[in-house]
Computed example of a mutant assay.
Amino acid sequence: MQKTLIILGVAIVLAGLFWPWLSKVPFGRLPGDIVIDKPGFKMFFPITSMLLVSGLISLIMWLFRK
């Protein structure tokens, strides 16, 4: 558990350091992400993005277990 928390903390710090470049990646605006934009109301459902993140995290965890 300690090793996982340390790795997660390092990943968050790295994401923070590289945020100016990461924000330019079109992640979160993939086909399949639903945006409802009405006057005074905006709702965002990142379905495709979350499936991609889930698959990536599952792959990384599977590789660490081996």
Rank of each mutant, 00 (worst) to 15 (best):
V13N: 02
P39T: 12
L52G: 08
I57N: 04
W21V: 12
I7D: 11
G40P: 09
G28Q: 03
S58C: 12
F41G: 07
L14V: 11
V13G: 03
I12L: 08
R65K: 14
F45R: 07
T4Q: 15
M43K: 08
K66N: 15
T48G: 00
L52S: 07
L5T: 06
F18M: 15
V10S: 10
I12E: 03
W62P: 07
W21I: 09
R65P: 08
P26K: 01
V35K: 03
A11K: 00
G32P: 03
S23W: 00
F45T: 09
A11E: 04
L5M: 08
I60V: 15
T48R: 03
P46Q: 04
R29K: 10
F18S: 14
I12Y: 00
I36T: 08
D37C: 05
M1H: 08
M50N: 10
F27W: 05
M61W: 01
L51I: 10
I34N: 07
P46R: 03
F27Q: 05
G40I: 05
G28P: 06
M61T: 08
L30K: 00
I7M: 11
L63V: 14
V13C: 09
L8R: 03
L51C: 11
T48W: 00
I12G: 00
I57D: 05
I60D: 08
F64W: 09
G9F: 02
L52E: 03
S49H: 01
